Simulated assay, not measured.
Amino acid sequence: MALRRGRTRAGAGAPDAPGGGPAVELRGVTRTYGRGRGTVHALRGIDLALERGSFTAVMGPSGSGKSTFLQCAAGLDRPSAGTVRLGGTEITGMGENKLTELRRTRLGFVFQAFNLLPSLTVEQNVLLPLRLAGERPDRRRAAEVLAQVGLTDKARRRPGELSGGQQQRVAIARALVTRPDVIFADEPTGALDTTTASEVLGLLRSAVDLLGATVVMVTHDPVAAAYADRVLFLADGYITDRLERGDATQIAARMAALTTPVYEGAGA
């Protein structure tokens, strides 16, 4: 299933969003947890720039730093060192209130567990980011994004009345409603069967191709990663490899060959 072409490209409605530069940029980003002998080096100097209108998958073995990478890139966690820029705005030293506002207005999130509020209708769930941002709920905008994900007739339903795939499509509509600079997806197909996962990945691919969205997706699945323009491979907090437009077989082979670099400063 593909998105229907919308009226406005992603990011166009974001307040104070600069017009140029990468959608996501990390420079010298490290993240450590704990102290002394118990210190964990989750990220070890990430240098990366992802252009607007691109789809990037991030893969790696358990403990490689995938989740920490996504959290730092999305402003959900602060790096120990280095800088993060989203849509041209540096967020590293941003105060929590401004950072929360930025996440609500200029970022979209899609999670494995859907994270829909069961007491709200589909339409109300989609409009929630606008409400949280203090904006007037725009039912026409909700109808637009629900049409794009093929759920026009489900606006009045509640999440419990939908299948898992339909709930994830609602989550994608919610992520698109603010026309964000970047959509961050964390294992978005982890709870779905193969056919439904393919539909959801097709929606994310179409968000990039038709709406100009930027998607950064963490996944363990080579088939899911094959929908992306590029795959970044993480191991022990480093980006150790990358693959442009790879198929699932190539991606699986790169994953199998992952090794931890023995030099400092490995990056993209």
Rank of each mutant, 00 (worst) to 15 (best):
R4L: 15
R5C: 07
G6K: 05
R7T: 04
G13C: 11
A14H: 00
A17W: 05
A17M: 14
P22K: 03
A23C: 06
V24W: 00
E25S: 06
E25I: 00
L26Y: 08
G28W: 03
G28I: 04
T30R: 14
R31H: 09
R31K: 11
G36Q: 08
G38E: 04
G45T: 06
I46H: 01
E51Q: 01
E51R: 01
E51M: 00
S54Q: 14
F55G: 05
T56Y: 02
V58H: 01
M59S: 03
S62I: 05
S62T: 10
S62V: 02
G65C: 13
L70R: 08
L70W: 09
Q71M: 15
Q71I: 00
A73G: 12
G75E: 01
P79C: 05
V84C: 01
T89A: 12
I91L: 06
T92G: 11
N97M: 12
K98C: 14
L99T: 09
L102D: 07
R104I: 08
T105A: 14
R106S: 15
L107P: 06
F114H: 12
L116N: 06
L116P: 07
L116D: 04
S119N: 10
L120C: 12
L120I: 08
E123I: 03
N125D: 03
N125P: 06
L130Y: 01
L132Y: 09
A133M: 04
G134W: 05
G134Q: 01
R139M: 13
R140H: 15
R141C: 08
R141W: 11
A142M: 03
V145I: 10
V145M: 12
L146M: 10
A147P: 09
Q148H: 14
G150P: 15
L151C: 15
T152D: 15
K154R: 15
K154G: 06
R157Y: 15
G160N: 07
E161N: 10
Q167G: 11
Q168E: 06
R169M: 04
R169Y: 02
V170I: 06
A171K: 03
A171W: 10
A175H: 05
A175L: 03
L176I: 09
T178D: 06
F184R: 03
D186W: 03
P188I: 03
G190D: 04
A191C: 01
D193G: 11
A197S: 15
S198T: 13
L201M: 09
L201Y: 03
L204R: 00
L204E: 04
A207P: 03
D209P: 09
L210Y: 13
L210G: 13
A213L: 06
T214Q: 11
V215K: 00
V216N: 07
V218D: 02
T219R: 01
A228I: 10
D229Y: 10
V231S: 05
F233V: 00
L234F: 14
T240W: 04
D241T: 00
R254Y: 09
M255I: 08
L258A: 00
T259G: 10
A268M: 11
A268F: 11
